[in-house]
Design a protein around this nucleic acid. Structure first.
Lengths: 112, 112
DNA sequence: TTTTAGTATCTTGCATTACAAGGTATTTAA
DNA sequence: TTAAATACCTTGTAATGCAAGATACTAAAA
Protein backbone atom coordinates (compact mmCIF):
# COMPACT_ATOMS: atom_id res chain seq x y z
CA UNK A 1 0.00 0.00 0.00
CA UNK A 2 1.92 3.01 -1.26
CA UNK A 3 1.21 6.48 0.04
CA UNK A 4 1.30 8.94 -2.76
CA UNK A 5 1.33 12.69 -2.38
CA UNK A 6 -0.64 13.35 -5.53
CA UNK A 7 -3.42 11.18 -4.24
CA UNK A 8 -3.41 12.97 -0.90
CA UNK A 9 -3.57 16.31 -2.62
CA UNK A 10 -6.37 15.12 -4.83
CA UNK A 11 -8.25 14.01 -1.73
CA UNK A 12 -7.82 17.46 -0.26
CA UNK A 13 -9.14 19.07 -3.41
CA UNK A 14 -12.23 16.90 -3.39
CA UNK A 15 -14.09 18.57 -0.62
CA UNK A 16 -13.53 22.14 -1.70
CA UNK A 17 -14.22 21.61 -5.32
CA UNK A 18 -17.91 22.22 -4.93
CA UNK A 19 -17.21 25.38 -2.98
CA UNK A 20 -14.67 26.64 -5.52
CA UNK A 21 -16.97 26.03 -8.44
CA UNK A 22 -19.79 27.90 -6.79
CA UNK A 23 -17.43 30.79 -6.07
CA UNK A 24 -16.56 30.95 -9.74
CA UNK A 25 -20.14 30.74 -10.94
CA UNK A 26 -21.26 33.33 -8.39
CA UNK A 27 -18.97 35.85 -10.02
CA UNK A 28 -20.54 35.65 -13.46
CA UNK A 29 -22.23 33.07 -15.69
CA UNK A 30 -19.67 30.65 -17.07
CA UNK A 31 -19.47 27.44 -19.04
CA UNK A 32 -17.28 24.43 -18.38
CA UNK A 33 -14.12 25.65 -20.10
CA UNK A 34 -14.27 28.94 -18.20
CA UNK A 35 -14.51 27.04 -14.94
CA UNK A 36 -11.58 24.82 -15.77
CA UNK A 37 -9.46 27.82 -16.71
CA UNK A 38 -10.23 29.69 -13.51
CA UNK A 39 -9.48 26.61 -11.45
CA UNK A 40 -6.21 26.24 -13.28
CA UNK A 41 -5.26 29.80 -12.38
CA UNK A 42 -5.87 28.89 -8.76
CA UNK A 43 -3.75 25.73 -9.21
CA UNK A 44 -6.79 23.55 -8.59
CA UNK A 45 -6.66 21.34 -11.65
CA UNK A 46 -9.80 19.45 -12.56
CA UNK A 47 -10.87 17.58 -15.67
CA UNK A 48 -14.14 17.54 -17.55
CA UNK A 49 -15.13 14.11 -16.33
CA UNK A 50 -15.19 15.53 -12.83
CA UNK A 51 -17.02 18.69 -13.65
CA UNK A 52 -19.96 17.53 -15.73
CA UNK A 53 -21.42 15.14 -13.17
CA UNK A 54 -20.88 17.70 -10.43
CA UNK A 55 -22.67 20.43 -12.34
CA UNK A 56 -25.54 18.10 -13.15
CA UNK A 57 -25.86 17.23 -9.50
CA UNK A 58 -25.95 20.88 -8.49
CA UNK A 59 -28.45 21.63 -11.22
CA UNK A 60 -30.89 18.94 -10.16
CA UNK A 61 -30.52 20.04 -6.55
CA UNK A 62 -31.70 23.51 -7.45
CA UNK A 63 -28.35 25.15 -6.66
CA UNK A 64 -27.60 26.02 -10.26
CA UNK A 65 -29.50 26.94 -13.38
CA UNK A 66 -28.19 27.38 -16.90
CA UNK A 67 -28.89 29.02 -20.24
CA UNK A 68 -27.81 27.87 -23.67
CA UNK A 69 -25.79 30.42 -25.53
CA UNK A 70 -24.44 30.28 -29.06
CA UNK A 71 -20.73 30.41 -29.65
CA UNK A 72 -18.88 32.10 -32.49
CA UNK A 73 -16.74 29.03 -32.94
CA UNK A 74 -18.27 25.66 -32.36
CA UNK A 75 -21.35 24.24 -30.71
CA UNK A 76 -23.52 26.15 -28.23
CA UNK A 77 -22.50 26.37 -24.58
CA UNK A 78 -24.30 25.91 -21.31
CA UNK A 79 -23.76 28.97 -19.15
CA UNK A 80 -24.35 28.18 -15.50
CA UNK A 81 -25.52 30.62 -12.87
CA UNK A 82 -26.50 30.44 -9.21
CA UNK A 83 -30.12 30.27 -8.16
CA UNK A 84 -31.33 32.05 -5.04
CA UNK A 85 -31.04 28.76 -3.19
CA UNK A 86 -27.55 28.46 -4.59
CA UNK A 87 -26.52 31.75 -3.03
CA UNK A 88 -27.75 30.59 0.33
CA UNK A 89 -25.91 27.33 -0.04
CA UNK A 90 -22.74 29.17 -0.99
CA UNK A 91 -23.02 31.26 2.16
CA UNK A 92 -23.18 28.07 4.20
CA UNK A 93 -20.17 26.59 2.44
CA UNK A 94 -18.37 29.82 3.17
CA UNK A 95 -18.89 29.20 6.87
CA UNK A 96 -17.75 25.60 6.59
CA UNK A 97 -14.62 26.69 4.81
CA UNK A 98 -13.83 29.23 7.50
CA UNK A 99 -14.46 26.71 10.27
CA UNK A 100 -12.18 24.18 8.69
CA UNK A 101 -9.49 26.66 7.82
CA UNK A 102 -9.45 27.93 11.40
CA UNK A 103 -9.41 24.39 12.73
CA UNK A 104 -6.43 23.40 10.64
CA UNK A 105 -4.54 26.58 11.50
CA UNK A 106 -5.22 25.94 15.17
CA UNK A 107 -3.71 22.49 14.94
CA UNK A 108 -0.77 23.82 12.98
CA UNK A 109 -0.01 26.48 15.54
CA UNK A 110 -0.15 24.04 18.42
CA UNK A 111 2.58 22.27 16.59
CA UNK A 112 5.25 24.97 16.64
CA UNK B 1 -31.51 14.61 -4.64
CA UNK B 2 -31.28 16.83 -1.60
CA UNK B 3 -28.24 19.01 -1.03
CA UNK B 4 -27.32 18.99 2.58
CA UNK B 5 -24.85 21.28 4.22
CA UNK B 6 -23.65 18.73 6.73
CA UNK B 7 -22.72 16.43 3.90
CA UNK B 8 -20.85 19.18 2.10
CA UNK B 9 -18.97 20.04 5.23
CA UNK B 10 -18.15 16.40 5.79
CA UNK B 11 -16.81 16.22 2.25
CA UNK B 12 -14.58 19.18 2.96
CA UNK B 13 -13.26 17.56 6.11
CA UNK B 14 -12.45 14.36 4.31
CA UNK B 15 -9.44 15.55 2.38
CA UNK B 16 -7.36 17.02 5.07
CA UNK B 17 -8.34 14.73 7.87
CA UNK B 18 -5.16 12.84 7.17
CA UNK B 19 -3.21 16.08 7.38
CA UNK B 20 -4.83 17.10 10.67
CA UNK B 21 -4.22 13.74 12.26
CA UNK B 22 -0.57 13.82 11.30
CA UNK B 23 -0.29 17.33 12.74
CA UNK B 24 -1.66 16.05 16.04
CA UNK B 25 0.56 12.99 16.16
CA UNK B 26 3.61 15.03 15.19
CA UNK B 27 3.19 17.03 18.36
CA UNK B 28 3.41 14.10 20.74
CA UNK B 29 2.50 10.41 20.85
CA UNK B 30 -1.25 10.01 21.23
CA UNK B 31 -3.91 7.32 21.18
CA UNK B 32 -7.29 7.43 19.49
CA UNK B 33 -9.21 9.25 22.22
CA UNK B 34 -6.56 11.96 22.37
CA UNK B 35 -6.86 12.46 18.65
CA UNK B 36 -10.62 12.69 18.76
CA UNK B 37 -10.46 15.21 21.57
CA UNK B 38 -7.97 17.43 19.80
CA UNK B 39 -10.02 17.30 16.63
CA UNK B 40 -13.08 18.25 18.64
CA UNK B 41 -11.30 21.28 20.01
CA UNK B 42 -10.59 22.31 16.43
CA UNK B 43 -14.29 21.70 15.57
CA UNK B 44 -13.32 18.86 13.24
CA UNK B 45 -15.51 16.11 14.60
CA UNK B 46 -14.62 12.57 13.64
CA UNK B 47 -15.75 9.20 14.93
CA UNK B 48 -13.80 6.07 15.77
CA UNK B 49 -14.98 4.16 12.74
CA UNK B 50 -13.22 6.76 10.62
CA UNK B 51 -10.06 6.91 12.61
CA UNK B 52 -9.10 3.27 13.08
CA UNK B 53 -8.97 2.34 9.40
CA UNK B 54 -7.10 5.56 8.62
CA UNK B 55 -4.49 4.90 11.29
CA UNK B 56 -4.06 1.33 10.10
CA UNK B 57 -3.52 2.55 6.59
CA UNK B 58 -0.92 5.05 7.67
CA UNK B 59 0.77 2.42 9.78
CA UNK B 60 1.08 -0.08 6.97
CA UNK B 61 2.34 2.66 4.67
CA UNK B 62 5.21 3.37 6.99
CA UNK B 63 3.97 6.84 7.93
CA UNK B 64 3.15 5.91 11.51
CA UNK B 65 4.43 3.55 14.16
CA UNK B 66 2.94 2.78 17.55
CA UNK B 67 3.73 1.48 21.00
CA UNK B 68 1.43 -0.28 23.42
CA UNK B 69 1.11 1.45 26.72
CA UNK B 70 -0.78 0.34 29.83
CA UNK B 71 -3.56 2.48 31.17
CA UNK B 72 -4.48 3.07 34.81
CA UNK B 73 -8.12 2.50 33.99
CA UNK B 74 -9.01 -0.02 31.35
CA UNK B 75 -7.27 -1.87 28.57
CA UNK B 76 -3.89 -0.89 27.09
CA UNK B 77 -3.66 1.83 24.47
CA UNK B 78 -1.85 2.17 21.18
CA UNK B 79 0.20 5.34 21.16
CA UNK B 80 0.97 6.45 17.63
CA UNK B 81 3.99 8.43 16.54
CA UNK B 82 5.43 9.64 13.22
CA UNK B 83 8.22 7.76 11.49
CA UNK B 84 10.93 9.62 9.63
CA UNK B 85 9.04 8.96 6.43
CA UNK B 86 5.96 10.28 8.14
CA UNK B 87 7.66 13.60 8.84
CA UNK B 88 8.57 13.93 5.18
CA UNK B 89 5.04 13.10 4.16
CA UNK B 90 3.68 15.66 6.58
CA UNK B 91 5.90 18.31 5.02
CA UNK B 92 4.44 17.49 1.62
CA UNK B 93 0.89 17.68 2.93
CA UNK B 94 1.80 21.03 4.40
CA UNK B 95 2.59 22.28 0.91
CA UNK B 96 -0.62 20.87 -0.50
CA UNK B 97 -2.63 22.55 2.20
CA UNK B 98 -0.98 25.88 1.51
CA UNK B 99 -1.56 25.53 -2.23
CA UNK B 100 -5.20 24.77 -1.78
CA UNK B 101 -5.74 27.43 0.84
CA UNK B 102 -4.18 30.03 -1.43
CA UNK B 103 -6.22 28.81 -4.37
CA UNK B 104 -9.49 29.09 -2.50
CA UNK B 105 -8.62 32.51 -1.12
CA UNK B 106 -7.74 33.67 -4.62
CA UNK B 107 -11.14 32.60 -5.92
CA UNK B 108 -12.85 34.21 -2.95
CA UNK B 109 -11.13 37.52 -3.49
CA UNK B 110 -11.99 37.62 -7.16
CA UNK B 111 -15.53 37.43 -5.98
CA UNK B 112 -15.73 40.67 -4.02
C1' DT C 1 -17.72 -15.75 41.50
C1' DT C 2 -20.59 -13.42 38.43
C1' DT C 3 -22.26 -9.30 36.54
C1' DT C 4 -22.08 -4.63 35.06
C1' DA C 5 -19.96 -0.45 33.48
C1' DG C 6 -16.32 1.88 31.43
C1' DT C 7 -12.72 2.11 28.16
C1' DA C 8 -10.21 0.25 24.30
C1' DT C 9 -9.43 -1.71 19.70
C1' DC C 10 -11.19 -3.22 15.22
C1' DT C 11 -14.40 -4.85 11.19
C1' DT C 12 -18.17 -4.81 7.82
C1' DG C 13 -21.09 -2.72 4.55
C1' DC C 14 -22.72 1.45 2.41
C1' DA C 15 -22.73 5.90 0.07
C1' DT C 16 -20.34 9.52 -2.07
C1' DT C 17 -17.53 11.24 -5.56
C1' DA C 18 -13.01 12.50 -8.33
C1' DC C 19 -11.08 10.67 -12.22
C1' DA C 20 -9.77 8.03 -16.52
C1' DA C 21 -11.41 6.74 -20.69
C1' DG C 22 -14.43 6.84 -24.23
C1' DG C 23 -18.62 8.51 -26.80
C1' DT C 24 -21.72 11.91 -29.38
C1' DA C 25 -22.88 16.36 -31.51
C1' DT C 26 -22.06 20.94 -33.70
C1' DT C 27 -19.43 24.25 -36.42
C1' DT C 28 -16.08 25.85 -39.67
C1' DA C 29 -12.65 25.56 -42.99
C1' DA C 30 -9.70 23.03 -46.08
C1' DT D 1 -16.91 15.54 -47.67
C1' DT D 2 -13.44 15.29 -44.70
C1' DA D 3 -10.86 16.97 -40.84
C1' DA D 4 -10.10 19.69 -36.83
C1' DA D 5 -11.72 22.17 -33.05
C1' DT D 6 -14.94 22.69 -29.55
C1' DA D 7 -18.61 21.29 -26.73
C1' DC D 8 -21.51 18.15 -24.16
C1' DC D 9 -22.13 13.69 -21.54
C1' DT D 10 -21.67 8.60 -19.65
C1' DT D 11 -19.59 4.45 -17.67
C1' DG D 12 -16.71 2.01 -14.58
C1' DT D 13 -13.25 2.16 -10.90
C1' DA D 14 -11.04 3.33 -6.69
C1' DA D 15 -10.74 5.76 -2.45
C1' DT D 16 -12.56 6.68 1.92
C1' DG D 17 -15.69 8.79 5.75
C1' DC D 18 -19.17 6.97 8.46
C1' DA D 19 -22.84 4.13 10.89
C1' DA D 20 -23.36 0.15 13.28
C1' DG D 21 -21.83 -3.49 15.64
C1' DA D 22 -18.23 -6.90 17.50
C1' DT D 23 -14.55 -8.11 20.66
C1' DA D 24 -11.53 -7.59 24.67
C1' DC D 25 -9.55 -5.92 28.98
C1' DT D 26 -10.12 -3.88 33.79
C1' DA D 27 -12.25 -2.85 38.01
C1' DA D 28 -15.89 -2.44 41.07
C1' DA D 29 -20.47 -3.91 42.60
C1' DA D 30 -23.79 -7.64 43.56
Amino acid sequence: MAINTENAKSQMRKGFLEYCILLIIANKPVYVSDIINELKEAHLIVVEGTLYPLLSRLKSSGILGYQWQESLQGPPRKYYELTEQGRQFLAELEESWNDIKNGVELLKNKNI
